[in-house]
């Protein structure tokens, strides 16, 4: 057998043609989203805790075709090389499977997402409750269907709650894409590919605090306000769904 024959995916050419068709659609004035949702409608969420029993806490989230599993280990001993610290440490790692993208990738760790996940969560966890130890949060994206990072963050906070790590509040996160004049919430992968700008918010609903806000592209102030309202509303609803999921798990177990 050849050691590493060069291969190509037969669907590449077809996808490129389809993408070119889509690009034209997005430029039109009123268009319908491919899965029939309204512009302000999020995908239905399926959340479950306790997916992996080897971990202290774990959660599985499925938003449409985006599927993510997150495991939390800890608090456990820090590496010997680390210096003493009287607050806890948080260590995050996000990796993608090789089949998560339509073109087969390498499955490497995504350092950018890892550091963004770290920043989103560290504001919410009470680090003083586990001094000298580390909490490890590992996320694996099984299938990437758009709006990956918000799903990872929401799933991670659910896993932290399942592990019993003390937090100020559950963290939920939503992203919004802008296409010319219109704003759509919770974009899918093909919508994300043609967006003009994106806006992601990570929010703690009961304390009404934003832990992380990421913005790319050109946004006017009015647009930002509108997007912010959309996001915060969606985050509230998502946090309710997460809470009910935790309650169900607690009642069942």
């Amino acid at each position: 057998m050849a050691t590493a024959p060069t291969t190509y995916s037969p669907s590449q050419a077809l996808e490129r043609r389809q993408q070119q068709q889509r690009r034209r659609i997005f430029k039109e004035e009123d268009w319908v989203r491919s899965d029939g949702r309204g512009f302000n409608q999020c995908r239905p969420a399926f959340l479950r805790t306790g997916a992996a029993n080897a971990a202290s806490g774990s959660a599985y989230a499925e938003f449409g075709t985006t599927k993510v599993i997150v495991s939390v280990f800890g608090p456990r001993e820090s590496k010997k090389a680390m210096m003493y610290s009287d607050i806890g440490r948080l260590n995050c790692n996000v990796s993608f499977t090789t089949f998560s993208t339509p073109i087969r990738g390498q499955g490497l760790d995504n350092k950018e997402f890892s550091s963004m996940l770290h920043k989103a969560l560290e504001g919410a966890i009470i680090l003083e409750s586990f001094p000298k130890t580390t909490v490890d949060v590992f996320a694996l994206v099984l299938e990437s269907g758009g709006s990956d990072l918000p799903v990872i963050i929401s799933c991670a906070s659910l896993a932290l709650a399942d592990a019993g790590i003390m937090m100020y509040d559950l963290v939920s996160s939503v992203s919004v894409s802008c296409f010319g004049k219109s704003l759509i919430i919770d974009p899918t992968a093909e919508e994300e590919a043609f967006q003009d700008g994106s806006f992601m918010v990570t929010y703690m609903p009961s304390r009404k605090e934003v832990t992380q806000l990421t913005l790319t592209g050109e946004w006017s102030t009015a647009k930002i306000n509108e997007a912010m309202e959309l996001c915060l509303d969606a985050c509230l609803k998502l946090a309710d769904v997460m809470r009910s999921c935790l309650k169900e798990a607690a009642n069942a177990g």
Partner: peptide, 8 residues
């Protein structure tokens, strides 16, 4: 693959 998710 055994990603870090699977085991401590």
């Amino acid at each position: 693959y055994m990603p870090p998710v699977c085991s401590p």
